[in-house]
C-alpha cells in the first residue's frame, strides 16, 4: 500500500509544472524515504532529478518500494481538477496498474477521486557523482527567471561567467548583444534577496537558453535558486522545496565543435 498526502494541492501542481515541459512521462519511485524521480528530457540534453522526502508529507505510507510510470500530460489534466487549497492524496495498491488522486476541499464537503492508468516505462537511471563545483551561485529565483527570459531574446545560448567579483550572463545574435552582471550582495534585509558566490576557480560556460527557461518553470517552488558550475561538466540548477525536498536540473554545456 502506498499513500501520500499533502495539505495543499498547490505544491504538487507547482512540482508538476516544473517538470512537464521537459518530460512527457516519468517514473515516480516511491519508498519509505519518499518519492524520487529521475528522467532525461526527450532530447537527452538535460536531466531532471526530483526528491520529495516522506517527512515533508502530511501523511506518508509506503509498505513496499513502488515505481509508478506516469504520463505527465494526464497527471496535469487531473491536477487541474484540484483547487489549490484542496488536500491531495495519492494512493496505490502494491503491484497496482493504477494510481488514485483524491482531492478534498477545506470544509471536507467535496471529495473527488481520479484514477489514472500507470505506464511501464523503461528508463535508465544515471549515477550522478558527488562533485565539488568551482562556482556555486545563489540568487533570487525570480531574478534568474528574468535574466533567462530577457537574454533568450538575443540568442539561443547564454554564457555564464563567474568570478569572485560576480556572475555575468551574456547572449548575442542578430539583434546585437546583451550582458547582465550581478555582484554579490553586500548586505540585504531579506535572505531570499541575496546573491552569494562561492568560488574556487572562475568558470565560463555556454548553455542553451531554451533549457534554462524550461528550468525556471520551478520558480514558484522556491525563493532562491542555486547554480553549480565547473568547467566541462553539467550545470546544476537547484530549487529547494521548503520542508519537502528539492528539484535539480542538470544541463550539459555547449562545447566548441
Amino acid at each position: 500500500m502506498f499513500e501520500a498526502r499533502l495539505n495543499a494541492a498547490t505544491t504538487l501542481k507547482k512540482v508538476l509544472d516544473a517538470i512537464k515541459d521537459l518530460l512527457n512521462e516519468a517514473t515516480f519511485d516511491c519508498s519509505d524515504a519518499g518519492i524520487q524521480l529521475q528522467a532525461m528530457d526527450n532530447s537527452h540534453v538535460s536531466l531532471v532529478s526530483l526528491t520529495l522526502r516522506s517527512d515533508g508529507f502530511d501523511k506518508f505510507r509506503c509498505d513496499r518500494n513502488l515505481s509508478m510510470g506516469m504520463n505527465l500530460g494526464s497527471m496535469s489534466k487531473i491536477l487541474k481538477c484540484a483547487n489549490n487549497e484542496d488536500t491531495v492524496t495519492m494512493k496505490a495498491q502494491d503491484n497496482a496498474d493504477t494510481v488514485t488522486f483524491m482531492f478534498e476541499s477545506q470544509n471536507h464537503e467535496k471529495v473527488s477521486d481520479y484514477e489514472m492508468k500507470l505506464m511501464n516505462l523503461d528508463q535508465e537511471h544515471l549515477g550522478i557523482p558527488e562533485t565539488d563545483y568551482s562556482c556555486v551561485v545563489r540568487m533570487p529565483a525570480m531574478e534568474f527567471a528574468r535574466i533567462c527570459r530577457d537574454l533568450s531574446q538575443f540568442g539561443e545560448s547564454v554564457i555564464i561567467c563567474c568570478t569572485k567579483e560576480g556572475v555575468k550572463f551574456s547572449a548575442s545574435g542578430d539583434v546585437g548583444s546583451a550582458n547582465i552582471k550581478l555582484a554579490q550582495t553586500s548586505s540585504v534585509d531579506k535572505e531570499e534577496e541575496a546573491v552569494t558566490i562561492e568560488m574556487q576557480e572562475p568558470v565560463s560556460l555556454t548553455f542553451a537558453c531554451r533549457y534554462l527557461n524550461a528550468f525556471t518553470k520551478a520558480t514558484p517552488l522556491s525563493n532562491q535558486v542555486q547554480l553549480s558550475m565547473s568547467a566541462d561538466v553539467p550545470l546544476v540548477v537547484e530549487y529547494r522545496i521548503p520542508d519537502l525536498g528539492h528539484i535539480r536540473y542538470y544541463l550539459a554545456p555547449k562545447i566548441e565543435e
Binding site: 537527452h44 535508465e124 544515471l126 553539467p234 550539459a252
Partner: peptide, 13 residues
C-alpha cells in the same frame, strides 16, 4: 557549438 547528451557525463546504473 555542439550540444552533447547529458548521459555522456553520468554513469548508467
Amino acid at each position: 557549438m555542439a550540444q552533447t547528451s547529458i548521459a555522456s557525463y553520468f554513469n548508467t546504473r
